[in-house]
Design a protein around this nucleic acid. Structure first.
Ligand SMILES: NC(=O)c1ccc[n+]([C@@H]2O[C@H](COP(=O)([O-])OP(=O)(O)OC[C@H]3O[C@@H](n4cnc5c(N)ncnc54)[C@H](O)[C@@H]3O)[C@@H](O)[C@H]2O)c1
Ligand SMILES: NC(=O)c1ccc[n+]([C@@H]2O[C@H](COP(=O)([O-])OP(=O)(O)OC[C@H]3O[C@@H](n4cnc5c(N)ncnc54)[C@H](O)[C@@H]3O)[C@@H](O)[C@H]2O)c1
Lengths: 220, 220
DNA sequence: GGCTTATTGGTATTTTTTTATCGAGAATGA
DNA sequence: TCATTCTCGATAAAAAAATACCAATAAGCC
């Protein structure tokens, strides 16, 4: 009956996806020195429904005060804790090409609980280099390094043709979760977490909307 | 306000997001020379529900044959037409940094109905260069080039601090749709399409799952 | 101190999306 | 030819998510 379903119960996926958006906004507020915030305010700012915001925040276990709202720092902590972003999870990146290099150069991951500590590539010319401060190793060294360093996350940015085999290496090395930037749907055992970054899906939403408005324009 | 739009536009967003995933798979099938495919087969391959696949495909207007399925080339065409991917939509990219450069170097966009024809950057050192075959112009030249070339899509990859002002330039230049890679929620008029690429959301799903399994492990 | 108002947190309702069911059509092989 | 089997397409049911509602509560104001 009570509120206590928080910990292991499966929260709605759409809610989880909104949490980092709140988090980003809350951090900006914290910088500005705002001590408290209400759902109404958050909702106004992000053009969402206040009730939805309240329900989303509730899954992290935060409790607010009527007429006041939530303490900003406390709310930030609560979201971070729920997502496992309090300490940065260490990760390996596989495939140091266009995208892989860009991700290695992105400082924002520090705020998203991710720390890429090393990179791997099968190309002899890439291995041995240092890109954005991270050493690039030959792929063969991944298994031993992964077990030695207790890394649980793999970021996959190889070409589609190499995606499954590279994923197999990650899985064989005891990696728990793969952040998959390739268009390939990976085969993986059920206890391995695979999260696909579907850039194409995002673009599909954009272009189907664009297509619809264009068609509309023509008609009227 | 055109009422005509409603019948065209009410496809479920989750369905639209799955379409490019089908498309990718169908193209692989076409390469292999497979002439027809059934929902059952697609569903098996992608670990989805066959009924869901059928409904998704139905929104593109395709009609299949019982006992046979769909003609692969016809189905590809149907999805492409629905998404507006039959001809590549021309786009400008703003912010030629880590991510912007990676996107410029990505050849896969040709299959996603996108063709980035030029790039813009406010940094004097970047303007004038050519990156992956695309010329980089100073941001000031964007408005005149956009109207001259009838470009409708802007890809936004500037730092968060510059996101809104760069978006304003795009909007002021008659751009219809912004593919926003920054974490900033942009203010835009209602007739401008803004599609946010929420990398953080994707990572949040991954890490909350990882966090949950870790907690589980500890308990047992 | 009592009144008013903003806001939480729980419940209820509506809407959206997913999943199940079933009749009919079409290929296959007996 | 005809039964069999697979698959589509439509409809119905279930599940998930978004939205509406309201009592309780705390802050600010008169
Ligand atoms: N570049 C982008 O903007 C972009 C956008 C969306 C999706 N993607 C996807 O990301 C992936 C990488 O794209 P990219 O543009 O960076 O490609 P890329 O060719 O620039 O880089 C791929 C890298 O992977 C390395 N590699 C190849 N096989 C490997 C293996 N078996 N093990 C380890 N490393 C291996 C290559 O040496 C190369 O350095 C692709 O699957 C692509 O579809 C890229
Ligand atoms: N790099 C990544 O992997 C990554 C991942 C997720 C999100 N992002 C987001 O993408 C954006 C860009 O990231 P990045 O790593 O490429 O940053 P970056 O600093 O490497 O590149 C930003 C580029 O934008 C240019 N720029 C700055 N202000 C501008 C303006 N007003 N008009 C035009 N150009 C301007 C800069 O000169 C620079 O070339 C950021 O908002 C970041 O949050 C990046």
């Amino acid at each position: 009956m009570a509120i206590v379903n928080t910990e292991l119960k499966n929260a709605p996926l759409p809610s989880i996806k909104r949490l980092p958006i709140y988090l980003n906004m809350l951090r900006l507020m914290q910088v500005k020195g705002r001590p408290v915030v209400s759902c109404t305010h958050i909702a106004d700012d992000l053009h969402l429904d206040p009730t939805q915001v309240r329900k989303d925040l509730a899954i992290t276990g935060i409790i607010g005060r009527p007429k006041v709202g939530y303490q900003v720092p406390e709310l930030i902590q609560s979201i971070e804790a729920f997502l496992g972003w309090k300490k940065a999870n260490e990760a390996f990146l596989v495939g140091v090409g266009n995208l892989g290099s860009a991700l290695l150069g992105y400082e924002g991951f520090a705020h998203l609980g991710l720390k890429i500590i090393a990179a791997f590539d099968s190309h002899p010319e890439k291995a041995g280099k240092t890109i954005h401060g991270r050493e690039v190793f030959p792929l063969e060294q991944l298994p031993s390094l992964a077990s030695r360093m207790h890394v649980h996350i793999g970021v996959l940015t190889v070409p589609a043709s190499a995606a499954q085999s590279a994923a197999d290496v990650l899985i064989g090395s005891g990696i728990r979760a793969i952040w998959n930037f390739t268009a390939t749907r990976l085969d993986a055992p059920p206890d391995t977490i695979v999260e696909n970054v579907e850039l194409a899906s995002s673009l599909a939403v954009l272009s189907s909307k664009l297509e619809a408005t264009m068609k509309n324009k023509k008609k009227s």
